[in-house]
């Protein structure tokens, strides 16, 4: 049964657990963003990232990037430290960028070690490429899902951010 906090009736929390049965805090919200605001955001971000492809059409805050990757697009996982718990308890293994495959998970880790963003690999980098940058798709906040090169997104451009790849083997 979804959990509802009576002091915060606009939010729903789903029963979400790791493979080891530990609960993962999450929240589902449905507060709409006005179309005019979204349009302004889109025009600014399309200029900043001209090569991105929007995979979905409707902006939604129902799930975030971590919810897309680890909770099947049903909810937001908003505590970055819980992602390490998921990686460990669900049995993910870190993969060298030389061995990336479609389906692997890309995590954007800040210089303080916090996971700021997550994505799913859709295309491995060409074997002959000097820089091993795969194509990924990810959910950009409350906007849409976007296909982009792993290094072409706002999170990759934060100073000190590195991208780690994981696979459930």
């Amino acid at each position: 049964m979804p959990r509802r906090d009576l002091t915060r009736p606009w939010e729903i929390q789903l029963e979400l657990e790791t493979a080891k049965g530990n609960h993962i805090e999450n929240v589902q919200t449905s507060e709409p963003i006005p179309i005019g605001t979204i349009n302004g955001f889109e025009s600014r971000f399309r200029r900043l990232f001209p090569n991105i492809v929007e995979r979905t059409q409707r902006a939604t805050g129902k799930y975030n990037c971590h919810g897309m990757v680890f909770a099947s697009r049903r909810t937001q996982i908003y505590e970055p430290q819980l992602l390490r718990q998921i990686l460990s308890e669900d049995g993910y293994t870190k993969i060298s960028e030389n061995y990336i495959l479609p389906g692997d998970i890309a995590l954007y880790v800040s210089d303080s070690g916090q996971i700021d963003h997550s994505a799913v690999v859709v295309e491995r980098p060409p074997a002959e490429a000097f820089a091993k940058i795969p194509k990924v798709f990810s959910k950009w906040g409350a906007w849409v899902e976007v296909i982009h090169l792993a290094n072409e997104c706002p999170w990759a451009q934060e100073v000190g951010t590195t991208i780690e790849y994981y696979r459930m083997v």
Partner: peptide
């Protein structure tokens, strides 16, 4: 600031 709110995937970000 509106762009940040739209783009924010976590409160920390």
């Amino acid at each position: 600031l509106s762009d940040i709110v739209i783009l924010a995937n976590t409160p920390a970000f």
